[in-house]
């Protein structure tokens, strides 16, 4: 009997701990859901993620299989509800597989960019001696217009989607580094950091375990907003022929290919255009909503 008692109390303890951790997430989620625009954005993002993950299920045709007898079918054609392109490839299937690519490229480049940006930001915010050097390096990166820097990097590395990821991530580093540095500068002056030092914690431990968790909110917001920029830039680079190479189904490349048929079959440019617009809009709106939801000074509850 004693055994069963302890077991239940342990279970209760575990449940409580879980609920405590969830509380913060639930609170943020609730605040986010009060923002109607953000909910709309969230729905679009969820749809995109589902499409991307289960692309083969949603795509009715092979996205790169040509069918020249059915070329340039319009929207609402039999069997191809979004029509076909000049090689007879199903536009809907290409959009679905394109969602996969833009999501992967977005996550990849933002992830890499965050990694570099957070590392640089933490170090330069915390160590005064390195601050000058790192921030001048960041200024140097800032001096290039973003898309030009990406083009420069791709020109050096060669054209491929992987290089697009690298180029966009490098371009994300300076902004992220500055955001993180700003947070670190204000956090490191807090007394609890001195208190941690007085307990004998090393600088690395303080940075990673105590400073970083305190600046997650701005990082989350930055990452969401950056997803939008990354997806847009991927499309732009592919449109210029620097990213995805044919026959890869990529939204920007689809617009580029559809350009020549703008007057005969406008859906070839309009459909991927709308897809890009919706996704970029969604990430921006959700980023905005998250910023409001994570800001403790914005009291949406009352």
């Amino acid at each position: 009997m004693a055994d069963s008692n302890t077991l239940t109390s342990e279970q209760v303890y575990a449940n409580k701990k879980e609920s405590k951790k969830e509380k913060m997430i639930v609170k943020t989620a609730k605040r986010l859901l009060k923002n109607k625009l953000a909910v709309f954005g969230l729905i679009i993002i969820i749809i995109q993620v589902i499409l991307a993950v289960f692309a083969p299920l949603f795509a009715t045709y092979d996205p790169i299989k040509q069918d020249l007898t059915n070329a340039e079918l319009g929207i609402g054609s039999d069997g191809h509800w979004l029509g076909t392109d000049n090689y007879g490839r199903d536009v809907w299937s290409r959009i679905v597989f394109g969602a996969r690519i833009s999501l992967l490229v977005g996550i990849g480049s933002v992830g890499l960019g965050l990694l570099g940006g957070i590392a640089l930001g933490l170090v330069s915010g915390y160590f005064k001696k390195l601050d000058g050097i790192i921030m001048r390096f960041v200024d140097l990166l800032f001096a290039f217009p973003g898309i030009l820097l990406a083009m420069l990097i791709i020109a050096m590395l060669g054209t491929s989607l992987v290089n697009v990821v690298i180029a966009i991530s490098i371009w994300s580093i300076p902004t992220c580094a500055r955001i993180v540095r700003g947070s670190v500068l204000s956090i490191k002056k807090q007394e609890y950091i001195l208190a941690m030092k007085s307990l004998g914690a090393s600088n690395f431990r303080i940075l990673v375990k105590h400073v970083l968790p305190n600046c997650t909110a701005p990082i989350i917001v930055f990452a969401t907003m950056r997803m939008a920029t990354a997806i847009l830039s991927t499309a732009a680079l592919s449109f210029l022929g620097l990213g995805a190479q044919p026959p890869t189904a990529e939204w920007g490349a689809m617009i580029a290919a559809g350009q020549d048929f703008m007057f005969t079959s406008p859906h070839l440019t309009i459909v991927p255009g709308i897809a890009i617009m919706l996704v970029v809009f969604a990430f921006n709106v959700v980023g905005d909503g998250l910023r409001d939801a994570l800001d403790p000074n914005m009291d949406l509850d009352q």
Binding site: Q190, E191, Y192, L194, A195, M196, S198, H210, N214
Partner: peptide
Amino acid sequence: FQEPMTALNP
């Protein structure tokens, strides 16, 4: 430390 309000990590 002096300030118990700020000496604990929030």
